[in-house]
Design a protein around this nucleic acid. Sequence first.
DNA 1: ATCTGGATTTCGATG
DNA 2: CATCGAAGTCCAGAT
Lengths: 252, 252
Amino acid sequence: MNMKKVVNIENPLNEKTDELIKKSLRKNRVIEIFGKCVIEYEGRASSHLGLGDRLILLKPDGTLLVHTKNQREPVNWQPPGSRHYCKTKDQKLVVISKRKSPEEKLVIEFFDVFSISSLDLVDEEELELNRSEEEMGDLLVEKPWIIEKGFSVIKREKETELGYIDLFGEDDRGNKVIIELKRKRISLSAVSQLKRYYDSLKNKYTNLRGLIVGPSVSEKSKNLLNEHGLEFVKLKPEACELGTDLTEYIDN
Amino acid sequence: MNMKKVVNIENPLNEKTDELIKKSLRKNRVIEIFGKCVIEYEGRASSHLGLGDRLILLKPDGTLLVHTKNQREPVNWQPPGSRHYCKTKDQKLVVISKRKSPEEKLVIEFFDVFSISSLDLVDEEELELNRSEEEMGDLLVEKPWIIEKGFSVIKREKETELGYIDLFGEDDRGNKVIIELKRKRISLSAVSQLKRYYDSLKNKYTNLRGLIVGPSVSEKSKNLLNEHGLEFVKLKPEACELGTDLTEYIDN
DNA sequence: ATCTGGATTTCGATG
DNA sequence: CATCGAAGTCCAGAT
């Protein structure tokens, strides 16, 4: 069953780890290092991280991740496209990752290495993700009556001077309608975004409405919508999955 | 030197891996699994990921990460605070992670396991990060003349009806000044944000200016600033680090 | 290369 | 718990 070759050193000696990492980098393997280290970063920002235990992950696409025992986010990293190097200096393993444009450099100095594994990962599958904002758009193009009776879509992703409008359409009285879709509760910045689109088209269309569509809206956002004469339409992203009962919208 | 105990199985048998993972979870270790798996997610969104090789990371704070050989971002994950479980079903290792509020569930079914390591990571260090937007604020509070001659800061993080203003101050002619700080090139949404703050205070102060401070500004954003009567002031975040030569601002 | 906006954003601060 | 905005955001798509 386990025909896959895992290179694994439990108590790595520095002279050997150096070699192993270099070879694994050449072979485009994913490399994982548990170790005690100090980290310096210099680039878009700059940072210093004192001595501690971390897990370092080197990916064949040039990604480098430094994970601590907490948090979803890496404490330090290099984005895809970086170049990784490694050497032994003063008896210590040093891993360096650089990229250009923007110029960025990460230096990891190991004071102890607990474990190294490296492996060729084969993965051709792509993630199928549902309930995105895009799916909300798909649903409304197909069933525009969910917005309101008589509504019709003219254009998806309409470009304006000031950004892209999710849906542009027309109501049963001939008003043009700008629709901004959100899969989460409506925030102030979402309202500002809609207002910006509205302003960019209000000179072009005399009868113009602006709708924001999402699962809910905060109090302040609702007030701001009212001030600007914009409207809110309730629609939860989970309603946009196939086979969902939409009868609650049917009296529109 | 290597007194740290690394639990490491190179060719894990499923009966043993089950036990090892359960024990490591109890002991709050960081667990890393290389394996071939299928993944289902159901929660804020939903997703399916077909058979492929991945690296799974389980953290003691309840974070779970699934990394493929590419990208900085995990292809699937659970945020901190989730609960991890593991079992053997149909001779296959299954790892499950759940959280409530919002309800989310991730199920990883392994068809092959290549390597497992688990380790107690000790890390008390905090990251020292420089060149943040906050540091730009620190500098301008200390040296307000960088904005312009005669400018003075009245308040940091001033709250308004429609959000928090980074800096609120006054110029040498008695105009009140709203300042929005950005460490990156100014985008349309940054301008919208400043406009929102400006609108929320323009009734309160008759002589009001709105400045946006950042390293550069896009053409569209510059136009939108002009339309609204708002202003741009150039300041790079790296200038906010200690010991930087600020003579280029000194004629202000 | 830049611009634009979404994201299972995450994260921290604040009320 | 909700709101708000930054982030070395990342990332995809469009120009």
